[in-house]
Simulated scan of single mutants.
Amino acid sequence: MSQVSRRPLSSKIGRRSFLKMAALSSAVGAGGVIASANATREATDAEVKNPYPNAKKVKTICTACSVGCGIIAEVQDGIWVRQEPAQDHPVSLGGHCCKGADMVGLLRSTNRLKYPMVKENGEWKRISYKEALDRIGEQLNKYQKENPDQVQFMGSAKVSNEIAYYIRKFAAFYGTNNIDHQARI
């Protein structure tokens, strides 16, 4: 019979173990408080059926890449409130990638640029679309006169062959061969 060595149990608990135990006990305690305080309730049948009562469902496509997966966007009072994959879409067959699954989040992000802005004296300032287009036009004219090869034109996987042709022709008339596709970036 083999002899098993028995070490005395240490009463010392490591820092990491203590933090894990503290986090677990806090979560259990908070869960108990929430459950006992009636802070949550069962959703009503109407809420489960449609939490956005006057919303309308609009079939659209995802613009994150060139695949064009199907999205059913739910719109309430002109605001996109949630989405689901279009189960009957011939390309995506009801699936979404991680980018497409959050298109509504991208659209509603607080970091989203919603209007033209320019940085002057270290501060961002809102400008009109007309002013923005005028500034871009002036800058393009300046670059074309100086050296057209300092400009690059970008295509997109979302454009048709005809639009891609026009982008290429515009770059040629501008005086540069610097054109690329957004998928290469």
Rank of each mutant, 00 (worst) to 15 (best):
K158T: 07
V151K: 06
K145H: 09
I136A: 11
K125N: 10
Y115K: 14
V75T: 04
T60A: 08
K158Q: 15
I71D: 00
L9H: 05
V118I: 14
E146I: 14
E47K: 11
D88T: 04
M21I: 06
R184T: 11
R108I: 03
E42F: 15
L106R: 14
W80P: 00
P148A: 15
A183M: 09
V159T: 13
A183W: 04
K49G: 01
A64E: 07
N147W: 13
L113T: 08
H96Q: 10
M154Y: 04
Y143S: 04
W124N: 15
L24W: 00
F153H: 03
W124K: 14
S5K: 13
E131M: 12
C97G: 14
E120S: 09
A73E: 06
S160T: 08
C98T: 07
S66W: 10
C65A: 01
P90W: 01
A22M: 11
R82D: 04
A46R: 11
L19W: 11
L107A: 12
A39E: 11
A171V: 03
L107C: 08
C97A: 05
F153C: 00
Q152P: 02
A73W: 09
E42S: 14
S2F: 06
G175W: 05
S128K: 07
A157S: 10
N54W: 09
M21F: 09
Y166H: 05
V91M: 05
W124Y: 14
R184H: 12
G100L: 06
T63P: 02
S128G: 07
K158Y: 09
E74T: 15
A43I: 10
M117A: 13
M103A: 13
P51E: 12
D149G: 08
V81G: 00
G137F: 05
S17M: 06
S17P: 01
C62S: 01
N121C: 03
P90L: 07
Y52S: 07
S10Q: 11
K158P: 02
H181A: 04
Q144C: 05
E47F: 15
T60W: 05
K125V: 09
E146D: 14
V4Q: 12
E42I: 15
I34W: 06
C69H: 02
A46L: 11
T60G: 01
F173L: 11
D88Q: 03
G105A: 08
H89G: 02
A46K: 14
A101W: 05
Y129M: 03
N177H: 05
A30N: 03
W124T: 08
Y52K: 06
R112P: 02
A35Q: 15
A23E: 08
D45L: 15
A39Y: 12
P85L: 06
S36I: 10
H181K: 14
V104C: 04
K56Y: 01
D149C: 04
G31S: 15
N141Y: 09
V104K: 11
A164H: 14
N50W: 07
L93F: 02
H89S: 00
A101N: 13
I79M: 04
N147R: 15
N178S: 03
S17W: 02
A171L: 02
K59N: 09
M1T: 06
A43E: 09
S66D: 13
A172T: 14
K56M: 06
N178G: 01
L140I: 03
N50G: 02
V67W: 03
K56E: 13
L133Y: 10
E131H: 10
T63L: 09
